[in-house]
Each structure stands twice: as structure tokens, then as C-alpha cells.
């Protein structure tokens, strides 16, 4: 596979760090080399949050992502801050509430899907948005086996929420399948 350098961004509390951990762990289960990292401010909730994961077949030297070939932006603020720094062929995934300039859409591979709405309306819990995103990202990039993803999700989320989160994962996959189908 091509070295994947993912940057996931959003608002603190949306669980983008956990999303990168799950992606990294699932890829690790699939015997890939992975590095996951994050940066955040002092706020536990509401601040800008950025988390990254590098996935490769070969040992990874530099642990951070300089120019990502995948960007997730769950909020307008995070899109505004991070959308310029991506590779030319990057997949840019945004929640459908985010305003993306027409020009940017033409020059970039933008996947616009209702992640937050799917979590709150379809799954019934806005807290599951990060897991919806994980499903969507994996469907778009084909990083890990679904089996490994499910294993990582169930190991990392609170006990008793397994069923809900597995549904969220598959709902995320379906969002991308549907959008690619268009």
C-alpha cells in the first residue's frame, strides 16, 4: 500500500483522537506499521483538536504528518485552519455542515457526508460521530480489514456500547459507499 498520512480535525470532545487510535490499532492488528499522535490545548471540551496517524507497510521514521494525504474536518473552524495543507491527491472528508468553497471542491477530492447527523439521528447518539467517521475513512481509503476495525472499536469504547458503535462504524462505511455511488 501507499503510505497513508491522515490528519483528523475537529472540536475537542468529538473523539477525533480516539478515531485515530482505532484506525492505528486496526492497522496494527493487520500487521502494518503505525504511528498515532495528537496535539491539543488545555480544554477537555470545545478546543480545536488535531490527531494524526501514519500507516505504512515499511518502518516509519518521522512520526508526525507534515502534509497529509487525507484530511477529516468535522467543523468549519477546523476546515478553515487545516484545508490548505494537504497533498494534491489528498482525500478531504468534511461533515456536510461545513462550507467548502467551490474552487476548493474543484481542485480537491472532497468527500462531503453527513457524519454528525448520522451519529445523532441514525445512530441516536452524537458521541458516536467519531466511530461513524472511522467507518467512512476506512471505506474511502481501504486501510484496514473490517474485522480488525470491529475488534479495535469494541476494545476501545465503553462497555455496554458495543452494539451502538458497531452500528455507527457500518453506518460510516455506508455513507461513503452511497456518496461514491452518486
Amino acid at each position: 500500500m501507499k503510505k497513508a498520512e491522515l490528519r483528523l480535525t475537529g472540536s475537542g470532545g468529538q473523539g477525533v483522537i480516539l478515531a485515530t487510535i482505532i484506525l492505528a490499532e486496526a492497522a496494527f492488528f493487520d500487521k502494518k506499521k503505525v504511528v498515532q499522535s495528537q496535539s491539543y490545548g488545555p480544554e477537555a471540551r470545545g478546543g480545536m483538536c488535531k490527531a494524526e496517524v501514519v500507516i505504512d507497510d515499511n518502518p516509519i521514521t518521522y512520526t508526525k504528518v507534515a502534509t497529509p494525504n487525507f484530511l477529516l474536518a468535522l467543523t468549519q473552524a477546523s476546515f478553515n485552519k487545516f484545508h490548505e495543507t494537504v497533498t494534491d491527491d489528498a482525500v478531504v472528508m468534511v461533515d456536510h455542515t461545513v462550507q467548502v468553497p467551490e474552487e476548493y471542491r474543484k481542485s480537491h477530492n472532497v468527500v462531503m457526508i453527513p457524519i454528525l447527523e448520522t451519529a445523532s439521528v441514525v445512530i441516536g447518539n452524537p458521541m458516536s460521530a467519531n466511530i461513524v467517521a472511522v467507518g467512512a475513512i476506512n471505506e474511502a481509503l481501504g486501510l484496514c480489514t473490517v474485522e480488525s476495525l470491529e475488534k479495535s472499536v469494541t476494545g476501545r469504547i465503553p462497555k455496554g456500547t458495543e452494539e451502538l458503535n458497531i452500528r455507527a462504524l457500518h453506518a460510516g462505511m455506508a455513507l461513503v459507499k452511497a456518496s461514491v455511488g452518486h
Partner: peptide
């Protein structure tokens, strides 16, 4: 902080 907070397999 880099090594302390990053995750690797």
C-alpha cells in the same frame, strides 16, 4: 512530549 504521547505498535 512527542515520544510520551505518540502511539506505536
Amino acid at each position: 512530549e512527542i515520544v510520551g504521547h505518540m502511539r506505536e505498535g
